[in-house]
């Protein structure tokens, strides 16, 4: 039978009742079994610079820092590590430009949290359009979008979104702007652009190549569509990374 104190969090009040001998026994048990509970206090946050990324996070007790990462959620085929401590900063270097990375942070044995980030620059997210026009990365072959009353989540807000963000995409009208947001989703699903889904089911999509960002309701209607000005904006958005190509229930409205 396992000793109960070994699974208690560090600093548990039971240490007082155990006395000094008990405390030593507890520490020995923790060292031997390596089962001290490590909790994530903050992060993980990502600072991306060129083809390097530094992953920051804080744990409540000293632990070794381990980052496992790869190009698809759950496919941790690369890893990096840092020293034992509570404030962790692990550098991932020589990354591919314009590429989405998914990662998990934790100790050597215990994953604590997952997140994702994208490096900037040209890379794996090349537009499929053959025209070479960066303003229309969805290409002339893209399907004709349904009317905005079908694709926009809250139609009464569409004019305001167009007024604020329509120029980002040289949209000629609010209808054109809503249509571009729908076309962006179609392309995001087709190409598997970087995406996150939060606990409310909202999907956020980013195209590092075009610098375009959109948020969609769980039914696929658009919440907003614009070009963020701040590097790292998408990385800081909430939600877990998802592969849009494998989300069966999530489709652009028709």
């Amino acid at each position: 039978m396992r000793s109960a104190p070994a699974i208690l969090p560090a600093g548990s009040a039971t240490c007082h009742s155990a006395g000094f001998g008990g405390l030593v026994t507890l520490l020995l048990l923790l060292v031997v079994t390596g089962r001290a509970e490590v909790r994530l206090v903050q992060g993980p946050a990502v600072t991306v610079t060129g083809t390097n990324a530094v992953i920051h996070w804080v744990t409540d007790t000293p632990a070794g820092g381990r980052v496992r990462f790869g190009n698809a959620p759950g496919r941790w085929d690369q890893r990096a590590q840092g020293p034992v401590g509570t404030n962790h900063a692990v550098t991932l270097d020589r990354l591919k430009p314009g590429t989405m990375y998914h990662f998990t942070v934790g100790t050597a044995r215990l994953p604590l949290a997952t997140n994702s980030f994208a490096t900037s620059g040209p890379g794996s997210f090349e537009p499929t359009a053959t025209s070479g026009k960066t303003e229309n990365p969805d290409g002339p072959q893209a399907a004709r979008p349904p009317p905005a009353r079908v694709t926009w989540g809250s139609l009464r807000t569409l004019e305001d979104h167009f007024d604020r963000h329509g120029a980002d995409f040289r949209a000629a009208s609010s209808e054109d702007y809503a249509g571009q947001a729908w076309t962006f989703l179609v392309r995001a699903i087709r190409e598997g652009l970087p995406a996150k889904q939060d606990t409310a089911g909202v999907i956020r999509v980013f195209d590092p190549q075009a610098g375009a960002f959109a948020a969609y309701n769980p039914d696929g209607t658009t919440k907003t569509y614009f070009k963020p000005g701040r590097r790292g904006y998408f990385n800081d958005q909430p939600g877990d990374s998802v592969d849009l190509r494998s989300l069966d229930h999530f489709r652009p409205p028709q």
Partner: peptide, 11 residues
């Protein structure tokens, strides 16, 4: 509570 902003523009 799910994080981030609502993206709703205040009229």
């Amino acid at each position: 509570a799910s994080g981030g902003g609502s993206f709703e523009i205040c009229p």
